[in-house]
């Protein structure tokens, strides 16, 4: 991959948590179905708190890819 595409890919990955938190949460504005007893919207937030470090890890890995 060339460096331009790598950069675009990293930005796209960075946008995933941003959209998930800022737009996803208000759209998934429901209690049901409850996930392991938690309301859906709260479970969604917890899921993305756990996924955000993985997104950053992926971005960091891509930073070190030789172009």
């Amino acid at each position: 991959m060339n460096s331009w595409r790598l950069r675009a890919l990293r930005i796209a990955i960075a946008l995933l948590p941003v959209l998930a938190f800022a737009v996803g949460t208000p759209l998934l504005n429901h209690v049901e179905p409850r996930i392991v007893g938690l309301p859906l919207n709260l479970a969604w937030i917890i899921l993305w708190i756990l996924l955000t470090p993985l997104c950053l890890l992926a971005i960091e890995r891509l930073r070190n890819v030789k172009t």
């Binding site: 960075a14 948590p17 941003v18 938190f21 993305w48 955000t52 997104c55 950053l56």
Partner: peptide
């Protein structure tokens, strides 16, 4: 927590 995660990015 939502803005915090975005802040870290």
């Amino acid at each position: 927590p939502a803005y915090g995660a975005i802040g870290y990015l």
